[in-house]
Computed example of a mutant assay.
Amino acid sequence: MSSPLLEYEVTGDDRRLGLLLLPPLGADLRYWDACIAQWRGKISCLAPNLRHRVDGQRPRPVTLEEQASDLETLRAALGFERVVPVGSAISTMAAACYAARHPERTAALVLANATARSLPQAASMLAERAEAVRAGGMAAILPQAVERAFLNLPKDRRYDAYLAAFGRQSAEDYAFACLASATFDASALLPAVRCPSLVVAGEHDVLLTPALGQEAAALIPGARFEIMQGAAHFLPYQRPEAFAALVDSFLASTSR
Rank of each mutant, 00 (worst) to 15 (best):
G202P: 05
G213Y: 13
L246W: 01
E226K: 14
E128W: 10
Q38C: 14
Y159K: 10
D14R: 10
A130N: 01
T209G: 03
R101F: 00
P4I: 03
P221D: 09
Q121T: 10
L74T: 00
R30P: 00
L163S: 13
E147C: 05
V133M: 04
S197Q: 12
G202E: 06
E215M: 04
Y31F: 15
A94G: 09
E131M: 08
L64W: 11
L153R: 06
L19S: 02
A180V: 08
G136L: 06
G26S: 15
A99P: 01
F166V: 07
F150N: 09
F225A: 04
A68W: 04
H233N: 12
E226P: 02
G137E: 11
L25D: 11
L21Q: 00
I43H: 03
S124M: 08
L20I: 07
A96T: 11
T63M: 07
T92V: 04
E7S: 14
G26V: 10
K42W: 15
E128T: 11
L190I: 03
G26M: 13
E104G: 14
A149P: 00
G41L: 05
V84A: 12
T183W: 02
L189P: 02
R239T: 04
A252Q: 15
F176E: 10
L46T: 02
L179Q: 13
T183I: 01
A164L: 13
A100F: 08
E81W: 09
M1C: 06
L219K: 13
G87L: 02
Q238F: 02
C45H: 06
R15N: 10
A231S: 13
A171L: 12
A116E: 11
A188E: 15
F250L: 01
I36C: 05
D160F: 05
P221G: 09
H102A: 13
L142F: 11
A177Y: 07
R101S: 08
S249I: 00
Q121H: 14
V146D: 01
A89L: 05
D55R: 14
W32D: 06
V86R: 00
V54L: 12
A68T: 07
F184C: 03
G202D: 01
R105H: 15
D33G: 03
G167E: 14
A177L: 05
V193Y: 05
S2L: 10
P221C: 05
G87Y: 02
A140R: 06
T254M: 03
R129F: 09
Y159A: 07
Y98P: 01
Y159F: 15
M125T: 10
A175G: 00
T11R: 10
T92D: 04
V54R: 15
A132T: 12
P240L: 04
G26T: 14
R60M: 00
F225L: 02
H233T: 13
S44K: 12
A99F: 00
Y98R: 00
V62N: 10
E241G: 03
V199I: 13
S124T: 12
R157Q: 07
Q229V: 03
L246E: 02
R82L: 07
F150A: 04
R82S: 09
